[in-house]
């Protein structure tokens, strides 16, 4: 059972919004007592996902939460866009696959950096990605 102890929402409209978003994520990581390495992994994951949100989803919002499962504290990030959705999610999760010009490391790479990763997409409605990094994860 995961409970939220603190929460805020950040709108992402343009590329410059990415830097303050990363800083907020860092603040949350520091607050739950994450190591520098885990903070770096979390922020890098966030940076990858927010790029997708801007590039493919046309912007959206990020919900940052401080969460606990009773044993460990962590940070949960939810990336919500109202873009076209992902046509083939299995393919999108494969290393090296990209419909854009990128390396195709974004989604699979991000999954390796965090403890929990969930992606929901619906054609014409949008995509929601949720990740959790535990303090000791």
């Amino acid at each position: 059972m995961i409970t939220t102890t603190n929460k805020e929402e950040i709108a992402i409209i343009k590329e410059q919004d990415v830097v303050p978003m990363r800083n907020r994520v860092r603040d949350y990581g520091v607050k739950v007592g994450m190591s520098i390495l885990n903070q770096t992994k979390l922020i890098t994951a966030a940076s990858e996902l927010v790029r997708n949100l801007l590039k493919y989803g046309g912007g959206g919002r990020v919900i940052v939460e401080e969460v606990t499962n009773g044993r460990d504290k962590g940070v949960r990030l939810t990336f919500i866009d109202n873009g076209p959705g992902i046509v083939n999610i299995e393919l999108a999760m494969k290393d090296g696959y990209s419909t854009g010009k990128s390396l195709g490391l974004g989604l699979p790479g991000t999954k390796r950096l965090v403890n929990e990763f969930d992606i929901k997409t619906e054609m014409g409605v949008g995509t929601t990605v949720t990740i959790i990094k535990w303090k000791n994860g």
Partner: peptide
């Protein structure tokens, strides 16, 4: 450095 390698780069 650790994060980059884990990311796959």
């Amino acid at each position: 450095a650790i994060t980059l390698v884990e990311l796959g780069l």
